[in-house]
């Protein structure tokens, strides 16, 4: 499947990074994909936390996307930006 770039706005990172994804990748896989370019590179890991993904907005208040849906189902297209952030597992 053709890959396309989305923008990873990873919590605590300094840069917005270009991450290649495809429409069949799940949101959980996308979170791990983005994490591989930030955690241990420019961002410390947060043991015990889980990663969640939401569409980037001016007010940072978009709901998290479900982990089991795909990038295509979430409607993400080229150069869409997502926030990837640490969260408590229960929340």
């Amino acid at each position: 499947m053709d890959k396309f770039p989305i923008l990873s706005r990873f919590q605590y990172d300094c840069h917005v990074k270009v991450v290649e994804t495809d429409v069949g990748e799940t949101i959980t896989q996308l979170a791990m994909n983005c994490a591989s370019h930030s955690i241990g590179i420019h961002v410390k890991d947060q043991p015990g936390k889980v990663l969640r993904v939401r569409k980037t907005s001016d007010t940072d208040d978009q709901p998290p996307l479900r982990g089991d849906i795909t990038v295509g189902e979430a409607g993400l297209i080229m150069y869409d930006c997502v926030d990837v952030y640490f969260s408590d597992p229960e929340s």
């Binding site: 923008l7 990873s8 840069h15 917005v16 990074k17 270009v18 991450v19 290649e20 591989s36 370019h37 241990g40 590179i41 420019h42 150069y79």
Partner: peptide, 10 residues
């Protein structure tokens, strides 16, 4: 090697 990102910034 971990100091070299494998992606690019936008």
């Amino acid at each position: 090697e971990k100091t070299h990102p494998e992606c690019v910034p936008i």
